[in-house]
């Protein structure tokens, strides 16, 4: 018996609570939970493992498919998803940006350089995995920012953009963010851990 839970749009602890309910009520042989953020992926995976499920995670753009199979049951089957994970054959490059301008000296020049840098990032192609924006870097994501169209284009092309929620709150910009996913330090640390290369600006 296979059960699927679509937890897109749910923040923690929502996906874990729904998974818990399902496992307690049905104990399926295979369960697939779809989540759209790193923290939920980690927590759902950890919860399934605590319930003696063998867990695989598939990544598709910004979505995570957390698939567990009962250890006593059959092996995990990827439900007719023979295609390899999109990122398996490519490098996973994370670019972490902690400022809205590049370098020191002249602020106006620095802002132009940052726009140019962001626009050129697409040359990394599929290797560009995630963009993490922290501290002053979150200002690039808000309404009216010149960087917004560039970041939206990157997001549309599958780059997962993580925007520090604590930083947005600190600057009073939480409601102004117009691109990317509001994130936390666990997402940041996990991204850095999983990356093949981290570029820090």
């Amino acid at each position: 018996m296979m059960k699927e839970l679509d937890c897109r749009g749910l923040a923690c602890p929502g996906p874990v609570l729904r998974t818990k309910d399902l496992l307690e009520n049905h104990r399926p042989d295979v369960i697939k939970v779809i989540v759209d953020n790193e923290a939920s992926k980690q927590n759902v995976k950890r919860f399934m493992e605590s319930q003696n499920y063998k867990v695989n995670v598939e990544i598709d753009g910004s979505l995570f498919y957390v698939i567990g199979s009962d250890e006593a049951g059959s092996e995990v089957q990827s439900e007719e998803r023979p295609a390899p994970e999109p990122h398996v054959e490519t490098k996973k490059i994370v670019v972490m940006i902690g400022t809205d301008r590049m370098g020191y000296g002249d602020d106006e020049l620095g802002k132009k350089l940052m726009l140019n840098f962001l626009a050129t990032l697409k040359e990394m192609g599929d290797d560009l995995w995630r963009l993490i924006l922290i501290n002053n870097g979150v200002k690039l994501t808000i309404e009216g920012s010149d960087a917004l169209p560039i970041l939206k284009e990157l997001a549309d092309n599958g780059v997962y953009i993580l925007v520090c929620g604590t930083c947005l709150t600190y600057f009073g910009l939480l409601d102004k963010k117009d691109v990317g996913e509001t994130t936390n330090m666990l997402d940041v640390v996990t991204s850095l851990q999983l990356a093949d290369k981290v570029i820090n600006i």
């Binding site: 923690c12 602890p13 939920s40 605590s50 929620g165 709150t169 666990l186």
Partner: peptide, 13 residues
Amino acid sequence: QKAGACLCCEELF
């Protein structure tokens, strides 16, 4: 906010 972290995300277990 006091913790500076999402407790349900990072410390659920």
